[in-house]
Nucleic acid binder design. Structure first.
Length: 225
DNA sequence: GCGACAG
DNA sequence: ATCTTGTCGC
């Protein structure tokens, strides 16, 4: 089990987030037509290990290009608002083992839609100086009106009087997913990328593939011990 | 003080 | 997230 989040570590984490947030470029630095490859990343857990998977595919056809994985010992407890410290090490390790550098990456978690505007997607993007977008299954902070029932319906996610993300209905009868900008991107680009990678599931295909890959890695890790 | 709280 | 079988529905 990872060591507890003592007041000391908590304060250190807050300072680290602030330092990373200052380095975030909060606007798009690439146009949709400049995106030729895209990565999806997710992490699975065994209890003591974080199993990360990054899948890279061509864009917009999503033909498989490469997949990288990495396993690390979990050294940070589960604490909403501090995912980067828990999953970051494994994700960075996986990204660094890639042969090709994707033009943009989507992470399973929030980007700007975070209490301090520095969620996992933004954090990882800054450390790799890679354009990123955050995609989560539910909001961490903020509220939104229920989007219409049809796929494509959206409603702004608002927190502290500011729109921090977007609730998007991707499938009829499924809870909307939450999108937010990461590093070197904006909410509009995040929406374009997600919309272009949906293939009938609640979550965009790249994240579903990363999820399955991470789950398979987890199974292999559990098996071999 | 109580409850909520990405994966 | 993870522990867990079958099951209802498109």
């Amino acid at each position: 089990m990872p060591p507890p989040l003592t007041p000391r570590r908590h304060q250190a984490a807050l300072r680290a987030q602030e330092a990373v947030r200052c380095r975030c470029i909060p606007h798009r630095t690439l146009a949709p037509e400049d995106i030729h490859s895209l990565a999806g990343a997710d992490v699975s857990y065994t209890g003591s290990c974080a199993c990360a998977a990054v899948v890279v595919a061509s864009f917009p056809d999503l033909a498989p290009i490469e997949c990288a994985t990495a396993v690390t010992i979990i050294r940070f407890p589960y604490a909403p608002g501090f995912f980067a410290f828990r999953e970051g090490p494994a994700l960075l390790k996986a990204f660094h083992s890639l042969t090709t550098r994707p033009d943009i990456a989507m992470l399973n978690g929030h980007g700007y839609a975070h209490p301090r505007r520095i969620g996992l997607a933004t954090h990882i993007g800054v450390l790799l100086d890679l354009p990123t977008v955050g995609v989560a299954g539910r909001p961490l902070v903020g509220t939104f009106r229920e989007p219409g029932p049809d796929p494509g319906a959206t409603e702004p996610l608002v927190f502290e009087g500011e729109q921090i993300g977007l609730a998007l209905r991707t499938r009829t009868a499924s809870r909307p997913i939450i999108l937010s900008a990461g590093h070197r991107t904006d909410l509009a680009l995040a929406e374009e990328i997600v919309a272009a990678t949906l293939r009938g599931g609640r979550m965009p295909l790249p994240l579903l593939e990363a999820h399955r890959c991470a789950a398979a890695l987890r199974a292999a890790v559990v098996h071999g011990r």
